[in-house]
Design a protein around this nucleic acid. Structure first.
Lengths: 354, 354
DNA sequence: CTGAAAGCGCTTACAG
DNA sequence: CTGAAAGCGCTTACAG
């Protein structure tokens, strides 16, 4: 529509001259702040339109001190959970006029440090971080708060200084085990995804993220409440990968006796377990019951449908953004949120065979 | 490590003063350009470190004219295909020192226009866009090229003016139908995902994106090559949603006679078809053969495993970034890429019952 | 309600 | 190899 093929991109002064006003006035009309008469505003907007003017947000940010940009540092954007959460982050932020810079860390603390640094250098107004370590958090405290407001996502760290939005993973895991027990399962295996693992093992790696620790503790708590024992050979910590999870599940299911149910701590672990059951000829829901974390789109379609612990994905991302925006507006604000997960029971869980 | 609790963030002049050099020299040492002696550089870096200096990339960008930021405008970041592609975009870009601003459009042309505008205002160095329309592309040409280099992702538009990275969806679809025919299927249904639909219908909506058009044309081409007829009642265009796809598939499978195979054009359509088959008691691979697009993590685990058309996801995003970076470096460069998809045959396809 | 001037924090020519 | 000055394109006080 607007003026075609200008040699050079129009800037504020061009608009101002064409509208016969000062730059200050043009800026006020364009930026929608300060006072201008309707007539002046119209003149300026018309001029801007004719020149196909695009404000330079860099210059605007430099002067105003705000970039309207939020940095998101996430372990793995391709993971089905984070990926939905990021979608809701983008949606919520965009409604408030903010854009999102997304960086990926693959749970590597060095990449996380670098990511936070880059985002601070780009002067984001706030930071949403999925921290890859509970202890190595200097870069989140020294460089982060209070200079740049920050909200942790999905995991807390060993510090009271940083707000977070998480799920009650302890309780989620605990309730899953209790449910399994309620239908008769006393032999329950655990397939746990840990980012730092390569391959799979029966001992918990030293450095696991908060979420993993909570899920394992929750299961253990349930075991002890119920008077059950966790068996080492029924528990495996696996790299986050379907193939490897499958091998880990085969290992668990080859134990004698084998567990009659498995709790799988994410989508990859659940798929690995399902795959292993298929391989071993175990009928899911009869020979082996399975509960997974996160209600992926395929979970309810699977044959049989997979029981899952459903976290409030959309609210989760939205809540992180809202909290962050409040902190941006009020730098003293301190608040965290813990969401409750929901157990969705489907046919992948049945009573154990007698 | 560095100086704790400075009242104010250090800036270039603080570093320069502490190192007893001019701002220009400090900038050169810090930015790694121009000439400085090793001794000077060390002094400056030490000072920067002590002051916990973080360069202001806004100021740097303003002066240098580069933001080291790429804008990505995508239909749906939560879609499993785009989501993996975005991951590879982030990885490839980050290796070259670029960050990614991601905006979501849900295939809404107005949101796309706004997204492109915002990104240009933020002065991204280049744009990767999944265009939601083949014809409404003014915002990609007038505002986009040649001012800001742009690469289309996954879809082309009706203009020679814009470079793209796509898959040969026509051929992918054609080869899937030919394969089905080769094992005996002459009655083949089509379940097509279209963003603009609400519910499902048997006529192709007017405005469908390039990818959809190619996939449908490819299937039609195969039909006519093989002397088969596409039947309207075996073809449905569905909103991109598992539930709705399921209803659409039920509709297709309720026709008499019903098709013995269905080609589903994305993950949601495939899940809907699988779900419908389950509901109708059809044994997949026997009563009904299915081929889907995109090799989601669950596809090979499903019971039976789903045959899919696999697109080169990781290369795809990487190629878009590489092409864009070349265009950023050389504004005259014109190049596009078309990748070949691969048919992965699994047990969801079998010979039709006699 | 509008304008002239200063300044956000850097980098880029230009001298030396 | 280093420095003094100008300037990137806006917005923010300050006057009027």
């Amino acid at each position: 529509m607007a003026g075609a093929m200008n040699k050079k991109a129009a800037k504020l002064i061009d608009v101002a001259q064409r509208a016969n006003v000062s730059r200050a006035t043009a800026a006020r009309a364009l930026g929608g702040y300060g006072l201008v008469t309707d007539a002046t505003r119209d003149k300026v907007l018309a001029a801007a339109n004719e020149l196909n003017y695009r404000v330079n947000e860099l210059a605007r940010s430099m002067r105003s001190g705000r970039t309207l940009t939020i940095g998101v540092v996430v372990a793995d954007i391709a993971n089905s959970f984070f990926n939905s959460v990021i979608r809701s982050i983008i949606e919520t932020a965009s409604k408030a006029g903010y854009q999102i810079l997304v960086l990926n860390t693959d749970d590597d603390i060095e990449r996380e440090r670098k990511a936070v640094r880059v985002l601070i250098e780009k002067r984001v107004d706030g930071l949403i971080v999925v921290p890859s370590s509970q202890d190595e958090i200097d870069h989140l405290i020294t460089s982060g708060e209070p200079d740049v407001p920050i909200v942790l996502l999905d995991r807390t760290v060993n510090s009271e200084a940083i707000d977070f939005v998480v799920t009650d993973d302890f309780e989620a895991s605990r309730s899953a085990i209790c449910y399994l027990a309620s239908v008769g399962h006393i032999d329950v295996g655990l397939l746990v995804s840990v980012a730092t693992a390569s391959g799979h093992t029966d001992v918990m790696p030293k450095h696991v993220v908060w979420t993993v620790r909570e899920r394992v503790s929750g299961a253990m708590a349930a075991f002890s409440e119920l008077g059950l024992k966790a068996r080492k050979r029924w528990t495996r910590y696996s790299q986050c990968n379907v193939e490897i999870a499958r091998n880990a599940a085969i290992k668990i299911l080859s134990a004698k006796p084998r567990p009659t149910a498995i709790l799988a701590t994410n989508e990859e672990m659940a798929l690995g377990t399902l795959s292993a059951a298929g391989k071993l000829g175990l009928v899911i829901g009869e020979d082996l019951s399975i509960i997974g974390f996160d209600d992926a789109p395929w979970a309810s379609v699977f044959n049989p449908p997979l029981s899952v612990i459903r976290r409030p994905v959309a609210e989760f991302g939205g809540a992180a953004v809202e909290l962050l925006l409040e902190k941006i507006a009020d730098s003293g604000l301190r608040r965290s949120r813990k969401f409750t997960a929901e157990l969705v029971v489907r046919a992948s869980v049945g009573a154990p065979r007698a």
